[in-house]
Amino acid sequence: MASMAPKQDASRKRGPRRTRRRWITPDMTALVDIALLLLMFFIVSTSFNSPVVMEMTVPEGEKPVPLSQVVSVVIQPDGLLKCSYAEKTVYLMPGHIAGLVAEATALIKDVPVIAVDAGSNVRYGLVVDVLDELMLAGVDSRFVRKNTVVLNNIAGLSY
């Protein structure tokens, strides 16, 4: 640094030069135009709805469940749900599963096992809708078996 000092002094002595001191203003218009164009492109092309997942589990073996514990929900191809539990059968429209779960939990003394049974000609979308509703109703672990989805309410494996 010290060696630089005399050089600086020498330049000072030449006197101030107006042209050097002037503020440099390059024309940024083109740059900003392109930047904004790219910005708009990226904003428009970004998709925010990335897919989400539902965790599923299939049982390794099979365990018998006492019939008194089972709430069977048969999804019919037309979307109607045939629900049998505690010796009665009701037909439900989709969207009323929360009520069914509440009633079954009250009626069945043991841990109710909700068995969702979808025939092979039922649309997959319907099955997912029913599973989704069951999860919203507080049914947690999902055990899927062949055409039967067994959903175990509250705790413990029962299938």
């Binding site: 897919p51 989400v52 599923m56 390794e60 997912v128 062949k146």
Partner: peptide
Amino acid sequence: RKYKQTEFQFVTDK
């Protein structure tokens, strides 16, 4: 299930 892959995910849209 046959290959003991007992856990998997269903991909859905939110």
